[in-house]
């Protein structure tokens, strides 16, 4: 890289054009994951698993071996891969509909087995790809195409807090919730992703980074308003922070 170069597209991504809506933060998260894989020199050993949702075609974007999984099953697919190739880096990239709803079982049990994999969990409180339906993470009162009068607690229960839930599992090594609503938090998000992949490299077990993300189209607002909405509505219900860091708790060895 010439000295004058201060930023360039990471080699961790292919040249394929993203299929995400303008203003969506998936693109940022893709870049962060790709940059981390390159910086940790893991890209050529990485096998990623695309899930079902907006990121279904992630296999076209990450510049490493990829496998596309059925809805919610990415942690099971990752388990199969990792058990065959324990020295490769295996990660899933899943949305909240995929992970917190149909795939709730798979992620819980992967954590329980402490599968040495990394889950990138993108939570935007809605089903984006199918057109903005209610997700298990949709906030109370939030209007979606299947909660047109606002999500009602009496009918649907409260939104699922995945990080808090997985942090209670003994096998979970590292669980952190971060957000990409402003540059400072984007940097924190990258740090969290990096730590997760480092732990995987050190064979520490199950790691998950939950990333609060926007869906300006699904939420029916401008990209900038969506960033504000995330900060004002999602963060109070989904507090940011490290929910589990077994390595730190036990003292790094």
């Amino acid at each position: 890289m010439p000295d004058s170069m201060i930023f360039q597209r990471t080699k961790g991504l292919t040249d394929a054009e993203f299929t995400y809506c303008p203003g969506c933060t998936h693109g940022i998260i893709h870049r962060l994951v790709a940059e981390v894989l390159v910086e940790l020199n893991q890209l050529e050993d990485a096998i990623g698993i695309a899930s079902v949702g907006c990121s279904v075609m992630a296999y076209d974007f990450f510049n490493c071996d990829m496998q596309q999984a059925a809805h919610g099953r990415a942690p099971a697919v990752a388990t199969g891969i990792k058990r065959c190739l324990p020295n490769n880096i295996v990660f899933t990239y899943q949305g909240d509909g995929d992970l917190a709803s149909i795939g709730a079982g798979e992620v819980v049990h992967a954590a329980h087995r402490s599968e040495n994999i990394t889950i990138i969990f993108v939570n935007n409180a809605i089903y984006g790809m199918t057109g903005g339906q209610m997700a298990p993470t949709t906030l109370i009162g939030q209007k979606t195409t299947t909660s047109p009068y606002g999500r009602k607690k009496e009918e649907t229960g409260d939104p699922i807090r995945v990080s808090e839930m997985l942090a209670t599992i003994p096998g979970a090594t590292y669980i952190e919730r971060v957000s990409v609503h402003n540059p400072a938090h984007v940097r924190k998000t990258k740090k969290a992703i990096k730590k997760a992949f480092q732990y995987q490299q050190e064979k520490r077990g199950f790691t998950m980074v939950e990333i609060l993300s926007t869906c300006n189209v699904g939420w029916g607002m401008s990209p900038l308003d969506a960033l504000d909405w995330l900060e004002e509505n999602m963060i109070p219900y989904y507090p940011l922070g490290v929910y589990k860091d077994k390595v730190k708790e036990e003292g790094r060895q």
Binding site: I47, I49, Q67, A69, A70, R73, A76, V77, A78, T79, G80, I81, K82, R83, C84, L85, G105, E106, V108, H109
Partner: peptide, 16 residues
């Protein structure tokens, strides 16, 4: 944890 998970583990493993 289930047959659903088992077959998807197979899918992942077979992919390698």
């Amino acid at each position: 944890e289930s047959e659903v998970a088992a077959v998807n583990m197979i899918y992942g493993a077979a992919g390698t």
